[in-house]
Amino acid sequence: MKKVIAREEWCLNCRLCEVYCRTAHSVSGDVVRAHLREDPTPVSRITVEGDNLDSVAVNCRHCDEPACVAACITGAMQKDPETGIVTCDESRCIGCMTCLAVCPYGCIKTGKAAVKCDLCQGTGEPACVKNCPNRALVYVEVGGAAK
C-alpha cells in the first residue's frame, strides 16, 4: 500500500501539515473557516514533534497488525483488507480511547470520537503531503500491508 513517509531531515517544523489536515477533515474545507468558525475545530491527525532544529511529522502507520484495531471494543476501528487503510468509523466509536492507549506511535487523537489519519481516503495524495513546502512528507508505495 501507499503510505505517508516522513523525511525528518527536511521537516521545517512549520506544521502546515497539521493545518491542512484539519482543513481536509473540516466541514467547510476552507482553511480559515475550519480554524476560526467551525465548532469543534477539526482535529489534526498528523502531529509535528520536536523543535526547529529537529522535528518530524508523525501520523498513522496503517500497521499490518494494528494494535488499535485489536483493542477496539466496538468494532469501529477497522483495517480495510483491500486498501490496507486503518479507519475509525466515528459513528460507531464510543470514545473509550483504548486505541489511544495502545498505539505505539501516539497517532490517535481525541475528538468527539477517536480521530486518526485516513490517508484522505479517495482523494489521492493526502493533504499533508500535498501541502508540505519542503517535501518532508512523501506518499509512496511501500508494499506489504494491503492484501
Partner: peptide, 22 residues
C-alpha cells in the same frame, strides 16, 4: 507529553519509515 522524539533519531526513523529509504 510523550513522542517519538524520545527515541534516538535512527530509532525513530526506523520506526516511522519501517526501513523504507526515500
Amino acid at each position: 507529553e510523550p513522542g517519538l522524539m524520545l527515541y534516538a533519531r535512527d530509532v525513530r526513523t526506523e520506526k516511522l519509515t519501517g526501513g523504507v529509504r526515500i
